[in-house]
């Protein structure tokens, strides 16, 4: 090959290589970009599906609780009322002892009736929605104190504001589940619930003086799993911490997705 031909060869080779490298570079960068987008979309879709599943599960549970609440209110409550009425209409008994027994039974029936009504209220999401999270939680704490199982306290800091109705119901269910766990497993005598309203959301802390719990996720029971899935649904976070002095400190962080809700 003469000199001109060598120059031609170099020129052609460089051009071919340049075209090839540019092609490969463009192709792989476009494909990688699209791949990343695909992965992100897939993750989003999975997350969305998970939220939908949690939503369906929560809706089903709410429906079940509502049915139980109606049953308590309309059926058992009515039966208890009728029993109370009938006992009240009993003619005066000759002996003091019998009269005392009837009066005692009437007292017991009144208390049972009150408990059934308050249980029915706490199970029904409509009443939670109507009363609001703070009031409904207050009722729940009162109910807890009434059964005299433990001494429960409830306090609030910050200025309370209404949250999204569905979110309030879910938060209330989480609190009920927490309280139920304390009653069933904690062996506690004190329970304290604290709401802190901040600008961007609500921080709930619950603590007891019980025996503590195994906080590793593998050992979560159905109740704790329910709490976690509900928190996921709210896009919030939950943290369990065993206190040194005994008992569990639970922190729930809920951030407002739509700030306009605060002004609603």
């Amino acid at each position: 090959m003469d000199k001109t031909q060598v120059i031609y060869l170099i020129l052609f080779s460089v051009s071919v290589l340049l075209i090839m490298v540019s092609l490969v570079f463009v192709l792989f960068s476009v494909f990688n970009k699209r791949r990343m987008k695909f992965i992100i979309e897939k993750q989003e879709a999975e997350k969305q599906a998970e939220i939908e599943m949690a939503k369906i599960r929560i809706e089903n549970q709410e429906n079940l609780l509502k049915s139980i609440s109606w049953e308590l209110h309309d059926n058992i409550g009515q039966l208890l009322s009728v029993s109370k009425m009938q006992l009240s209409m009993l003619p005066e008994q000759p002996t003091d002892l019998s009269r005392k027994m009837v009066n005692d039974t009437l007292d017991v029936l009144s208390r049972v009736l009150e408990d059934v009504r308050s249980l029915s209220k706490s199970l029904n999401t409509d009443s939670v929605g109507f009363m609001g999270l703070v009031k409904a939680t207050g009722f729940e704490i009162d109910r807890l104190n009434r059964i005299k199982f433990l001494n429960a306290k409830f306090n609030i800091t910050g200025k309370p504001f209404p949250l999204k109705n569905d979110d309030e119901i879910v938060l209330f269910r989480i609190l009920q589940e927490l309280i139920s766990n304390v009653i069933k497993h904690a062996k506690a005598s004190e329970f304290e619930l604290h709401f802190h309203y901040a600008n961007n959301g609500l921080v709930i802390t619950a603590q007891d003086d019980g025996i503590g719990m195994d906080i590793s996720k593998e050992h979560y029971g159905i109740g704790l799993k329910n709490i976690v899935s509900r928190i996921k649904f709210l896009n919030g976070s939950i943290d369990f911490h065993n206190k040194n002095e005994g008992g569990v400190l639970t922190s729930i962080k809920y951030t407002i997705k739509d700030p306009d809700v605060m002004n609603a």
């Binding site: 090959m1 031909q5 060869l9 052609f12 080779s13 051009s15 071919v16 090839m20 092609l23």
Partner: peptide, 26 residues
């Protein structure tokens, strides 16, 4: 990767007199 870089080469070879060996190497 074969056809795109080869296209300008074959067009050039059609209109220019270039040593065949260059074409073979590419």
């Amino acid at each position: 990767l074969f056809y795109v870089p080869f296209l300008p080469v074959i067009i050039t070879f059609e209109f220019m007199v270039v040593n065949f060996e260059i074409k073979n190497i590419i």
